[in-house]
Amino acid sequence: MQVVSTVKEVRDIVAEWRKEGKTVGFVPTMGYLHEGHGSLISKAVEQNDKAVVSIFVNPMQFGPTEDLESYPRDLEKDSKFCESLGADLIFHPEPEEMYHEGFSSFVDMTVLTEELCGLSRPVHFRGVCTVVSKLFNIVQPDRAYFGQKDAQQLAVIKHMVDDLNMNVEVIGCPIIREEDGLAKSSRNTYLSAEERKAALILSKTIFMGQKMVEEGETDAVKLVEAMKKNIETEPLAKIDYIKAVDGMTMQQVTELKSPVLVAMAVYIGKTRLIDNFVC
C-alpha cells in the first residue's frame, strides 16, 4: 500500500491502473479511522480491483467556532488500519495542496442543505460538496462509499453527482455501532467516561423511535416529540435537532410515508453527535 500527498501522484497511480483495466473504489475520510470507516473500505476492496482512501481534515467544512484544530489525527494508525483491510492507496494531502493560494471556486447546493445539519452548520455542506467534487476529479473512481450515519451528507452527495453528471456510483453503507449501541464516530474520543455513558441516550432514543414505527406509529410529529422527551431525560444532553424529513429532499414531513429519515444531532457536553434511522 502506498501513501501519497500530491494530486499528481494520485493521478499517475490511477492512470496506470486504468491502463491495466482496473476498477477503482474510493472512500473519502477525515481520518482517525474506526470500524465504521473500515466497513466502507472493506466494501470498496470487495467491489473493485483497487481501493483508494483519502485522509484529509477539510478546513472548508468547519465553522469558525468548530473543532478543526482539535479534530483527532493519527496517520500512522490509520495507515496500518487501511493496509490491514486491503486498501491500495492513501491520499493524504496538506490543505495547501487542495486549496492553493487564490482558491475561489466552490460547489454549493440549495434545498437539501437547508435543514438538519445544514441549518445549524451553515458553511458545512458547501465545504463538503467542494472537497468531494475535487476528490472525485482527482481520483476518478468508479464507485465511492459513504456511511449512512451521515445521512444528509449521503443524500447531498448523491444529488450533487446526479445534478452535475459525475461519472461515479455513490454507495451508502449501514451505520456501524459499538457493542452498547452508540454509533461509531471519531468524535466519540472527545467524551469523558461520564459523557460516554450519557451518550447512549442517542442510540436508545433511535431504537425507541424504530420500535414506535414498527408498532404502527405514522404521525411524524408524535414520533419526534416522544424522541425529544426521551433525550431530555439525560441531564448532559442538549438537543440541536430531532426531525423527520423526506429521505430525498430533506424537507420536514408530518406523516411517516417511506422513505423518511428520522435524524438527530445532540450535544453531550461540548461534543456534537449524530444518529438516525430510515423508515
Rank of each mutant, 00 (worst) to 15 (best):
F81W: 06
E69G: 09
S54W: 06
H92R: 09
C82T: 05
D88L: 04
Y71C: 06
D74L: 01
F56A: 02
V57I: 15
Q61M: 10
E83D: 13
G86I: 12
P59L: 11
K77M: 13
S79Q: 13
L89V: 10
D88Y: 11
L85R: 07
V57D: 09
G63L: 08
L68H: 03
D78A: 08
F62V: 03
F56T: 01
S84V: 11
P93G: 10
E83Q: 12
T65Y: 11
H92W: 10
H92P: 03
D67V: 02
L89P: 00
E69Y: 09
P72G: 01
I90E: 01
G86M: 13
E83H: 06
G63S: 07
M60C: 14
L89I: 11
L68E: 08
P93A: 10
A87S: 13
S84E: 14
F62Q: 00
N58F: 06
F62S: 00
I55E: 02
F91K: 00
L89T: 04
V52P: 00
F62W: 13
D67C: 06
P72N: 04
F91E: 00
S70Q: 13
R73W: 07
S70L: 08
Y71P: 09
E66F: 01
P64T: 05
V57M: 10
H92S: 15
C82L: 02
L89G: 01
L89R: 00
V53N: 11
R73Q: 14
P59K: 10
L75I: 15
E66D: 09
I90F: 01
N58M: 11
V52C: 03
R73G: 01
A87K: 03
K80M: 13
P64C: 09
P93V: 10
V53W: 07
D78W: 04
I90Y: 01
K80H: 13
T65F: 12
N58E: 09
F56I: 07
T65H: 15
F62L: 04
R73C: 04
D67S: 04
P59A: 14
L85G: 06
D88E: 13
T65W: 07
M60V: 12
G63M: 05
V52D: 00
D78Q: 05
F62M: 06
E83N: 09
N58T: 14
V53D: 09
L68K: 06
L89Y: 05
I90C: 00
L85K: 14
S79L: 11
E83I: 07
Y71K: 08
